[in-house]
Write a protein that binds this DNA or RNA. Structure first.
Lengths: 351, 351
DNA sequence: TGACTTAGTTGGAACGTTCCAATTAAGTGC
DNA sequence: GCACTTAATTGGAACGTTCCAACTAAGTCA
């Protein structure tokens, strides 16, 4: 048993057929006699045969390796872990395996792992690009005809498919929720104003303010680092203006938490004295005090859809670039006050 | 450019050498002339050559595929995501890539993905086994000489390496901490009593109780499902006995949270009226109210060590089974009361 | 009977590498 | 000038599979 690998030739010999026939059995071809098939299968089990996929897709060159690559920028972030799980689910049931690598936002690492995956012959790639990824980074892949789906963040200029969450609609819903609670002066806090995601969210803010007939003041828009510290800073600046806001939609949950911190340092209690809406629905959003009202994106679902799209392109043999925006829902908790409303745990939104 | 793959033969032709020489260059052999080497490398870059690792390790059969498999039972759990990241770090810098699959505790899935990975020629496997994994599940792997490292949970009877956290020492430290705060009646709550992990933790409890000269009463040990609901149930039963406990070490953090719930429903405030210690240090432990005093294991470090061990075995060509227990530390927060002590954020423990 | 069809099987070439033994070219010692 | 060493290169076989064209055996039709 321990002598070398069991090959298709060993099976052929033991079953008294040719290697070609064994190969046919392997592929489930209808050309082989039922008797031979069962015989061959029995021998395989008996000898502990392991299919050598490497050899196989050496022959059927370029075709199906049954491997896809998944590269994410931060797997320690629950969001991306969920994304990976979603991908894994559909990929597994399609009989594929996935390479999964983490880049920690490093462009070099990203380049390395993608190169490495190519050497191993991936038939497609799902990429949650690290910051500053450029279209040129993906150029060789698409030139080689390998389908690519970028997720979460877009790569401007790259002719690949993408799936991102509906940033505009999410913030829109957040603002509308605040308006329905009676707020008229609503700020937009946090985020670097030179990113595509920021633009989309700000766009949603503007649209919702207009939609509710509220004044749009530039002083109510205060960018900052998309972090807790940035949020604390932003709320400070927002409350320094003449007509102070009474509520805010935040660039993300981290900013929202920072806003809560900032409010408390000046004696205001978030949820009671000031309403706060986040974005992302990170795990802590549920357990924080007050529990954060936020925009929830379904990362696992995004992963599933990304994988489905990729598999579709792999099977089609042609990668028609396609852009999906993943819908998003408002989750009402306690950070906007109003216990009555907080009772309905969440409300879905049409995309 | 789009016509087929660029092969080593194309390079050879373009550079005016033989394919053997190109191969030598690829492997960084010192046998080739410096001039030829740079020439060949230049041509490779020019033609956009991509190394075909599949073909390579078809030839050097059984040797190094530069792929390792990682299979975890629940990637949505932050603990395992961190573990995977740790593995990825060392695996990446060793020039390997990892297959990563999630089993969601399903034995069937686990079998499938492991089989699939074998077909793709992994040179080693890191497995955080799903419940009820048996030694026989790993038998074929070790028979084929593929190194296996099981992590987090042990697989009894399997002749493979393992890395698990120091369950005994962790609980021991928890009990000792409670004793140092003056508690004399300390319960051990939660966990299914038919698992190896339970036994190890209970063992730590017994040893610590004995060590502190405290009575060991069986009624203070109450198993339950290792979940929040289980914890609530367990504390109820623990407080129904004659001489009630004043503190508890819990099987894990989920149980500990359940214990807090249970305490509150009968009007007791955890951290003030009853001391609670968890195990795992999940993310919520820090943000919960009261913040949970718990035993922290370093999953990323575990992942790194698991990967190092596996690579060592792969390089050695022989898989000497080795058992590592990963040390663990007590993190003191607020769920045992005593603000004075809570000030020192954590205290390391000798393993 | 001979020409066909059909179901099942088969040998050999090919995929892109690596390894081995063989070869060439040039230098070295005497 | 000969036997040697050394440095660099090379052709061909091999790895385990798939694909193709060819083949066999048996049945069908007129």
């Amino acid at each position: 048993m321990a002598k070398g690998r069991v090959t298709v030739i060993d099976i052929a010999q033991a079953a008294g057929v040719s290697k070609s026939t064994v190969s046919l059995v392997l592929q489930g071809s209808p050309l082989v006699n039922e008797g031979t098939r069962t015989k061959v299968n029995a021998v395989m089990r008996e000898l502990g045969y392991v299919y050598n996929r490497g050899a196989a897709n050496l022959r059927q060159s370029g075709a199906k390796s049954k491997i896809i690559g998944v590269v994410v920028n931060d797997l320690t972030n629950g969001f991306f872990a969920e994304l990976a799980v979603g991908v894994d689910m559909v990929v597994q049931s399609a009989g594929f395996v996935q390479f999964l690598s983490n880049t920690s936002e490093s462009l070099d690492r990203q380049r390395e792992v993608i190169a490495s995956m190519r050497e191993h012959g991936i038939s497609g790639l799902i990429l949650s690009p690290s910051r500053a990824t450029e279209a040129s980074d993906l150029k060789p892949l698409v030139a080689a005809g390998i389908p690519v789906v970028v997720a979460v963040r877009n790569v401007p200029g790259a002719r690949v498919s993408s799936i991102v969450s509906d940033n505009r609609e999410g913030i829109f819903a957040g603002v509308q929720h605040l308006a329905s609670l009676g707020h008229r002066r609503i700020a937009f806090l946090g985020g670097f104003n030179d990113t595509a995601v920021f633009d989309e969210r700000l766009d949603g803010y503007r649209a919702a303010m207009a939609n509710c007939g509220m004044a749009l003041e530039e002083s109510l828009i205060v960018p900052s680092a998309p972090s807790r510290a940035g949020g604390a800073d932003a709320i400070g600046r927002a409350l320094a203006i003449e007509e102070k806001p009474t509520a805010a939609v935040c660039f993300n949950d981290a900013v929202a938490f920072g806003v809560c911190d900032g409010l408390r340092t000046i004696g205001l209690e978030p949820g009671r004295d000031f309403a706060v809406v986040g974005f992302d629905d990170v795990i802590e959003a549920k357990t924080a005090v007050p529990a954060l009202t936020t925009i929830s994106v379904d990362p696992q679902g995004m992963g599933r859809r990304a994988a489905q799209l990729l598999l579709k392109q792999i099977n089609a043999g042609k990668a028609e670039a396609e852009a999906i925006v993943s819908s998003v829902r408002l989750v009402v908790r306690e950070s906007c006050g109003s216990g009555a409303i907080a009772k309905r745990q969440s409300s879905p939104i049409m995309a």
